[in-house]
């Protein structure tokens, strides 16, 4: 079953079509990797899906509803979560407070007025264990190491528990071990969640991806299994070749 269906999507910045007639279908529970040279429009595609950028034309269907015109918080409520390329946790808040913000089952004002604490059990505990931050729940996020900050952000996405998770270069700046651990987490998420990952690290892509989409100049260049992609001459020319 297709959960995300992007039809002929275009966005124009001045004279530049950062995304140009893009068509992309992602199935429920799939983990899709998005590759492409710098400036190919990968981040912009994620921006369009989560609502950071509005499309000039085209259509985005998510879970059977047209979300093309929805405000970003409404898309989040539909079940779309996003990790940005630049780590963005709330530095002034503690680890557990960051998780509490992310754990937004009931994001309405009135529900929030009657919520005084998020108990550390169930999914919250699970998530903190997974990224080894249980010991640090009262640490201000601004005082975490770079690696821990990355984990916190991944933990926030897990706590948010979105149907569709969009990740922009999640392993950037990670050590090999950290990258492996991230790959492990991703593999355990597939099936339950649908994930789109933008990633440069081919090692990582081989470990997690079922299907890979290669973008170039705002549209899809090639699409297939990792083996097919690595054998594709056009892809070699624009991306893997150098």
């Amino acid at each position: 079953m297709t959960v995300l269906d992007i039809q002929n999507l275009t966005v124009q910045f001045g004279g530049l079509k950062a995304v140009n007639g893009l068509n992309l279908q992602v199935k429920m529970g799939e983990l899709r990797c998005l590759l492409g040279p710098n400036g190919a429009g990968k981040s912009t595609t994620l921006d369009l899906i989560c609502g950071k950028t509005r499309a000039t034309s085209g259509k985005i269907m998510f879970d059977g509803t047209d979300i093309t015109e929805l405000a970003e918080y409404r898309r989040a409520r539909c079940g779309i979560g996003r990790k940005f390329q630049v780590p963005s946790v709330f530095k002034e808040l503690t680890v557990i407070e960051n998780i509490e913000i992310a754990r937004s089952r009931r994001p309405g004002l009135w529900a929030a007025l009657s919520t005084f604490r998020t108990p550390i059990r169930g999914r919250v505990k699970d998530v903190l264990d997974r990224v080894s931050l249980v010991e640090h729940i009262d640490t201000k996020a601004g005082n975490l190491s770079h690696g821990q900050t990355q984990w916190l952000e991944i933990a926030m996405l897990l706590a948010q528990d979105s149907k569709l998770i969009l990740m922009d270069e999640p392993t950037a700046g990670m050590t090999i071990q950290e990258t492996l651990k991230t790959a492990e987490i991703f593999n355990s998420l597939r099936g339950e969640h649908t994930i789109i990952v933008v990633e440069h690290d081919m090692q990582f892509v081989r470990q997690v991806a079922q299907r890979v989409t290669v973008m170039n100049q705002g549209s899809v260049l090639a699409d297939g299994s990792i083996a097919e992609i690595e054998a594709d001459a056009r892809v070699k020319a624009v991306y893997l070749g150098h």
Binding site: G81, E92, I101, P107
Partner: peptide
């Protein structure tokens, strides 16, 4: 002290990030 206060402090730091978690 309620979650409203927490969300407001998060908004002070990065309002747009808060939106991507579904808060209006």
């Amino acid at each position: 002290r309620s979650k409203v206060g927490l969300v407001l402090r998060a908004i002070r730091e990065d309002a747009s990030r808060v939106r991507y978690f579904g808060y209006d």
